[in-house]
Design a binder for these strands. Structure first.
Lengths: 118, 118
DNA sequence: TTCACCAGGTAACCAATGGTAACCGCAGAG
DNA sequence: CTCTGCGGTTACCATTGGTTACCTGGTGAA
């Protein structure tokens, strides 16, 4: 359907997953949630998310800020410091997300087993 | 990293989201969960997931079966009928997923508002 | 006979995602 | 005077994900 597609206004879940399901978002949210209600600086986030590049961290945070899940605070210090923290909305998302995380930690081994099995 | 990349063995959440976060998986799981513990046939799924193509439903179901979240049963009838249902693992995933769905239904409007705002 | 249905498979294409590398200005350390 | 760290941005590429379109092969309906 290349056309207008008025469908799929439905399922907000998919739209949510489109936002938080991208490669690095869940890890960023996790790190920010662990630090909540404190803030984390850009470079700290980078260190705590192994393998992420500056660009990807940047765009990931931008989208989270854009969606109102993360707040960005610029400290006008000498080399400018930028602090990130979860908003209230972000913190509320943390609840179901933590449940999903627990499930993942408990059951991903079974998925791996099934995937490897055949 | 086109190379081996030994990093990111961590965060099972991201690996989970890599699997269930793709465009159609969440909707397929939802439909199967609504029908659980009953089964749903291919064409029924196709009708209940507006906009999905045959191919995408096919590959989506394949990956779910591959990951052990969905079971596939072939009924050797005249034009062969294929039935899908959530496995126990899939059903257990439904719990945190339902929580995420509830969050999405309750709060996506706020995200939309924030996104539209700027 | 021709059509549509069933459950897919295949091929080709296109857009979006993700990744690498380089660059920016500014500061303090050496 | 050069190097590093800070918080990005930009340009460029490769890979992936998703899409349309067409194929199969057997069946019952028109």
């Amino acid at each position: 359907m290349t056309r207008g597609d008025l469908f799929s206004p439905a399922c907000p879940t998919r739209r949510l997953l489109d936002r938080i399901g991208s490669k690095w978002t869940s890890m960023a949210v996790k790190v920010l949630a662990e630090a909540a209600p404190g803030e984390v600086r850009f470079a700290d986030l980078r260190r705590r998310i192994p393998g992420i590049s500056q660009k990807m961290l940047s765009v990931t945070l931008q989208s989270l800020v854009h969606d109102g899940l993360v707040a960005r605070r610029v400290e006008p210090a000498v080399p400018v410091r930028v602090h990130y923290r979860l908003t209230e909305l972000g913190l509320s998302l943390e609840v179901p997300l933590a449940a999903l995380r627990e499930w993942a930690e408990a059951h991903m081994a079974e998925i791996d087993e099934a995937s490897a099995g055949r």
